[in-house]
Design a protein around this nucleic acid. Structure first.
Lengths: 333, 333
DNA sequence: ACTGTCCGAGGAAGCGCTTCCTTGATGAAG
DNA sequence: CTTCATCAAGGAAGCGCTTCCTCGGACAGT
C-alpha cells in the first residue's frame, strides 16, 4: 500500500505539502505541486478513504434508503431480482453495500483505478450480456470478486462465480418440448459468447441428440425483447415447419410470441414455447409462459455469502456454485 | 459524538478493555464486559467505521459493480428510473453510494440506529406508496435527507424534497381530456395520503372546475396494476357514462385498460385515458398510452445534487425543487 | 539598513479505534 | 515459601491522513 509519506518522500517534500498538493490547496508552489502529482502518479497512490474520513470528520458517502418493498417490486428483470437477493443478504451482515457504476464509455484503466480507490473488501458483478468484458478486466485486480453467471473466462482462470444449472435448464426445456410431442424444435439463444448461453445450448442439444432430433435449428440473439422478435422471424423463415422453440429469456420470449402471433402461429396449438427466467413477464404474457425458473434471489444471496468467504479466506480455491433450475408449467407448451 | 473513550470512562475501565468488550473478545471479565455494554447502550455509542477501517485495515464494505446498461434496462418502474438518474449523478462526484435496506418488519428505532451506525453524510429516499412512514421517521435524525416526491409532512416541517410538478401534471391531464371533448371525466388516484396523489388530484380538479365540469368522480387506488384494474371497475359501476379518465400511473393504467376492455369499452373511441409516468409500459400497452411524463432520471440526479448542497451548507433552508412535467401524446386519447 | 507583511513549507498533534506488549495479581506446582 | 504459568487489564504505539500553528525567507515600505 502506497501512503502519502511514500509520495512525499518520492517528491522530496513533507507529508503536509504532499497532502496540500493532492488536495489542490493553493498555498503550495506550482513546481512542488507538480512534483507531488508526478510522484503520486508514478507510485499509484490512492488516498485511504478511511484515514481521510477520520481526519476530516466527513465520509463522502451518502445513503440511498431502500425499502424492502421498493426492490420487491422489481420483479421484472434478471438484474433486479438478483439485486434484491443480494441486498437482503447484505443487510444480515454488518457490511455495507456500495454501488459502483461502470459507465458505458469509461476506459478499463480508469475503472480499475476507480475500483481500487473505493477501498472495498471485495466486489460482485451480475453478468448480463452487456458487461461480459468485466470478468477479464477484474482478473487483473487481486480484489476478491464473485460473478453471478459463469464468465466465459472461467475455464482457465481462478474466477469465482455462482450460477444456476444452465445445462440442466436447457435439458429441461428440451425434454419438456419433446414430451409435448414436438420434433422440429428450434432455439433462440442469448449472445453465444456468454457462458450461460453456451451452457443452456449444450443442455438443450444433448437432450435433442439423445432423442435423435435435429439440434441445429439455432438463432442467436441478445436476451432482449426486440432481439427475440427478430430471431423468431429468422428461425421461422429458415424452418417453416418448426413446432417447438426454446427461448433463453422471458424478455426474448415476449418478442418471439409477438412475431409468432403476427405470423398467424398459435401458441401452444401450432408451436410450443419454453422460455427461461420466470420473471413477471412469464405470467403477464398471453399465453402465460412455461419457463425454466432460476432461483435469482437465492443466486444473489449466495453471491454475497460467497464473497464473504472469499474475503475471509483469501488465496483459497475459487468458489463455484451451481443452484438447480426447475420447470414452471404454464400455458405455452 | 460518543467515542470509545467516553464509554470506557463511563464504565470505569480503560479504552483497551472497552474495545475488547465491544468486540466480544473473551479476555475480558464478564462483569466488566457487561458494564461496558451498559455504558455503550446508555451513551448511544456507535463505533466510527472509518477509525475501525484504519486500525484494522479492513473496510467491511463490498461493492456491487453495476454497468450502466444494467440499470438503463430498468426502465419499467418509477423506482428504477429514479435510481438510474441518482447513480449516474453520484458517479460524477467522488462520493460513494451505499444502499441501506429498510426491512419491512424492522422497527423504527432499530432502523434509526442502523442509519446512524452507517456514518454516512446524508441520505436519500425515493418515496413510493409503501414507505410513506420514512419522512416522519427521518425527521428525528439531523442527518441531511432529501426525498424524491413531496412528503405529506412537508407543510409544517423542514424536510427537503425534489418533486415533479404534479399539480401541473394533473392539470395537463385534465385539459387534454377536456380538449378531446370529454366531459364525464373520472380519476384514479394513488394513495390519497401521499403528497403526489394530492397534488395531481388538485391540478386535475382545478382544471375541471375551471371548465364547469364535475370533478368528484374519484377512485382511490395504490399505484399498482391490480389496484388500477379494480378501481376502474368501481368507477365504471358508479358512473357508467364516463367518457374520460385520468389514471395516476402507467402501472394502474395497465390494469384499468384491462378492465375497460373486459367491459367492452374501447380506448380511445368510447373512453379516453391519460396516465402518468411514461415508463416503458406506456409504449408496450395496446393502445399505447398518452401519458404525463415525469423527468424521473433528472429527478434522481437532482436529488443527489440537492443532498450535496444540504451537506455542504447544513442548517440552511430546506431545498424544495419542482421539475416540469410534460404530455406525451400517443393513442389512448 | 531595519521593521513589518506575506507566503510557502514543515512539525506535530490529533481524528477514533485496534492490538502488541507489558504488568500486576492470582493460583498451581515444586 | 519460592517459582512459574495463567489471565485480565492497561499503556502506548500506530493505522494514513488533515490541519493548526509556527517559522524562515523574500519583498516592500520607511
Amino acid at each position: 500500500m502506497v501512503t502519502l509519506d511514500d509520495v512525499a518522500r518520492e517528491a522530496g517534500v513533507s507529508r503536509t505539502t504532499a497532502s496540500r498538493a493532492i488536495n489542490g490547496k493553493l498555498t503550495v508552489h506550482p513546481e512542488r505541486s507538480a512534483a507531488v502529482q508526478r510522484a503520486a502518479e508514478k507510485l499509484g497512490f490512492r488516498p485511504n478513504p478511511a484515514a481521510r474520513s477520520l481526519a476530516r470528520g466527513r465520509h463522502d458517502s451518502v445513503a440511498l434508503i431502500v425499502s424492502e418493498t421498493n426492490i420487491e417490486g422489481m420483479t421484472n428483470s434478471f438484474f433486479a431480482m438478483a439485486l434484491h437477493g443480494a441486498i437482503r443478504e447484505i443487510a444480515k451482515t454488518d457490511q455495507q453495500l456500495v454501488m459502483l457504476l461502470r459507465a458505458n464509455d469509461e476506459s478499463d484503466e480508469k475503472f480499475l483505478r476507480f475500483l481500487e480507490a473505493s477501498h472495498v473488501d471485495g466486489a460482485m458483478v451480475i453478468l448480463e450480456s452487456h458487461n461480459t468484458e468485466l470478468p477479464g478486466l477484474l482478473e487483473k485486480t487481486d480484489l476478491p470478486v464473485v460473478f453471478l453467471g459463469r464468465p466465459i473466462e472461467s475455464v482457465d482462470s481462478a474466477l469465482s462465480y455462482i450460477d444456476s444449472d444452465n445445462v440442466g435448464g436447457g435439458r429441461l426445456a428440451a425434454e419438456t418440448l419433446i414430451a409435448a410431442g414436438r420434433h422440429r424444435i428450434g432455439i433462440i439463444t442469448g449472445p453465444i459468447g456468454m457462458g450461460v448461453s453456451q451452457d443452456r445450448l449444450r443442455g438443450f442439444q444433448m437432450a435433442l441428440d439423445a432423442h435423435g432430433l435435429d439440434s441445429t435449428l439455432v438463432a442467436e440473439s441478445d436476451f432482449l425483447t426486440a432481439g427475440g422478435a427478430e430471431a423468431m422471424g429468422r428461425l421461422l423463415d429458415l424452418y417453416p415447419d418448426l413446432d417447438g422453440v426454446f427461448v433463453m429469456s422471458d424478455l426474448m420470449a415476449a418478442g418471439a410470441v409477438g412475431t409468432l402471433k403476427a405470423r398467424g402461429r398459435r401458441v401452444p396449438e401450432d408451436i410450443s414455447l419454453v422460455s427461461f427466467d420466470d420473471t413477471v413477464i412469464a405470467t403477464t404474457l398471453e399465453p402465460r409462459l412455461t419457463t425454466v425458473r432460476q432461483p435469482l434471489e437465492e443466486l444473489g444471496a449466495r453471491m454475497v455469502t460467497a464473497l464473504a468467504e472469499l474475503i475471509a479466506a483469501p488465496g483459497e480455491a475459487p468458489i463455484r456454485d451451481t443452484l438447480p433450475t426447475s420447470l414452471v408449467r404454464r400455458d405455452s407448451v
